[in-house]
Amino acid sequence: MEKPRSKKKAELVSKTISYILLTLLAFFFFFPLIYMISTSLNPDEREIERQMGSARAFIPEQVSFENFRNVFDRMPFGRYLFNSIFIVGSTVFIGVFVNSMAAYGLARFTFAGRGALVSLVIALMIIPFEAIAIPLLLMTARWGWLDSYHVQIIPFIANPFYLFLFYQFFIGFPVALEEAALLDGAGWFKIFWKIALPLSKPIIASVAILHFLMQWGMFLWPLMVTVGPEFRPLPVAMQVFFGQYPRLWGDIMAFAAMMTLPVIAVFVLLQGQYVRSVAQSGIK
């Protein structure tokens, strides 16, 4: 009788330790984000400066959206938001079609050089964007593409990594349905559009999420190719805003919060899917 009880006790102790650790860690990951929110809501810049080092910074004496209004007064935030959404949205949207089509072409047809093409795609995955940034800048500058939307969209549509994720999905996917449709006289494009794509929703979601995250946070490229507010996306605008003196931390944090909280909200809702996407990115 003694043994199970002591075992139960040990279990309880280990559970308690686990929860303490988990909670401390949650605090470590949360506190900068909470600090951002509470500072953004504090309309008194002098209070922010006075309390920035104490726990009281987390509880502002008064709460208002004044800092958020200031951001809109001080710079065309709406324009930057639109730019980011437009650039990221079109890249990811077109990217899903282009990458899945190419993957389908590689997965479903036999032709000479198919294996070589697959190897080429895998080899391209090794090239980090940073290794082509400067020559790409030179090329697009010569074409007169600088300071535009398309210079931030077109080069990032096709991506060997996302293409490969689609390829793996199609390879491991039964062809019976497609063959039946083919015998019924459907064309290949119709089969792709009506059968393969609708059945690929899970992988489309994964690729779209990873592509979105990469594109939404992009900084180095728009820093080099955009000049003014017209085509500039949020991350570069944030950096410009941050560089304006005197630094008004309330306004800066309001800008940061507006950029961050909607994305966090969406990802908390989609967290199961996000976890699957990241896990998939680690398969190979």
């Binding site: 860690l25 949650a26 990951f29 949360f30 900068p32 984000l33 951002m36 995250l213 939404w216 946070g217 900084f219 949020l234 991350p235 570069v236 944030m238 950096q239 940061a256 950029m259 961050t260 994305v263 966090i264 990802f267 908390v268 967290q271 996000y274 976890v275 990241v278």
Partner: peptide
């Protein structure tokens, strides 16, 4: 798990 991955969806600039 959600708490720990929140920073990964926060843009590096922010």
């Amino acid at each position: 798990r959600t708490a720990y991955f929140l920073p990964t969806v926060t843009v590096m600039v922010v």
